[in-house]
C-alpha cells in the first residue's frame, strides 16, 4: 500500500461507531465593528504601522507621490512602479510581463485593493491587482489605493464578500513587513516593504 492509503486507513481505524461525528458549528458574530468603519479601519491600520492618507481623486495621489517620493529622492534612478493606469504620469506601468526579479530595485510600488477590514486594518488583494505576486513584497515601500466605501466590519464579513471567488493567489495585508524577533523590539521592514501608505479615496 502507498503511504497515502496507509495514512487514510490508519485515520479510518480511529473512527468511532458509537457516536455521531461532531457537526460544524454556527460562526459567531457581533456588531462591535459595525459603526465608524472608516475611522476604525484607519485607527487600526495606523496602529500596526501603516500610514493612512485621505484623498479625493487620483490627482491628490499623484501630488502626494510627487511631494513625498520624487522630491526627497536622492537617487536619479528612483523607481516607482504601479498596476494602476491612472498613475502612469508618476509611475512605470507595463512591467507585469517581465521577470519578478526585475522588481528588485523598485523603491515604491502602488497597487489597488479590493476592500479593507475595519477590525484589523487589513486589505484584501488578489493576483489580478498585483502585476506580480512578488510586487507588494519586493519593493522598499508600498502604497495601496482603497475606496472608502469598500470597508467591511470583520473577517467574517470579509470571507462572505470573497465567497467562492476564483484566484491563484490572494492575501490579507495589514501594514508594512515587520519583526520583533530581536528582544521584542519592533522593526519595520523585515524582508518586505519598510512602509505601507494607504490612499483612502473618500
Amino acid at each position: 500500500m502507498s503511504s497515502r492509503d496507509n495514512i487514510l486507513a490508519a485515520i479510518g481505524k480511529t473512527k468511532r461507531n458509537d457516536r455521531e461525528p461532531s457537526p460544524l458549528p454556527q460562526i459567531p458574530t457581533s456588531d462591535t465593528f459595525n459603526d465608524r468603519l472608516i475611522e476604525r479601519f484607519s485607527e487600526t491600520l495606523t496602529g500596526v504601522g501603516g500610514q493612512v492618507v485621505r484623498v479625493t481623486d487620483w490627482l491628490d495621489i499623484i501630488q502626494h507621490i510627487e511631494q513625498t517620493y520624487r522630491q526627497v529622492s536622492i537617487s536619479p534612478a528612483h523607481r516607482i512602479v504601479t498596476t494602476l493606469p491612472e498613475l502612469s504620469a508618476v509611475a512605470e506601468v507595463g512591467w507585469s510581463g517581465l521577470s519578478p526579479h526585475l522588481l528588485a530595485d523598485a523603491d515604491l510600488a502602488i497597487i489597488g485593493a479590493h476592500f479593507g477590514v475595519a477590525e484589523n486594518g487589513a486589505v484584501w488583494l488578489t493576483e489580478s491587482l498585483l502585476g506580480h505576486r512578488a510586487a507588494p513584497f519586493i519593493c522598499q515601500h508600498l502604497a495601496v489605493v482603497l475606496n472608502a466605501s469598500n470597508i467591511v466590519p470583520t473577517m467574517h464579513d470579509a470571507y462572505e464578500r470573497i465567497g467562492d471567488a476564483e484566484y491563484g493567489f490572494g492575501l490579507f495585508m495589514a501594514g508594512p513587513s515587520k519583526s520583533a524577533d530581536i528582544e521584542q523590539s519592533l522593526v519595520m521592514g523585515a524582508h518586505g516593504p519598510k512602509t505601507m501608505t494607504l490612499f483612502l479615496m473618500v
Partner: peptide, 10 residues
C-alpha cells in the same frame, strides 16, 4: 489583530 500577511496559495 492579524499578521501583516495572510497569504492564500491556490
Amino acid at each position: 489583530p492579524i499578521t501583516a500577511y495572510s497569504s492564500h496559495f491556490k
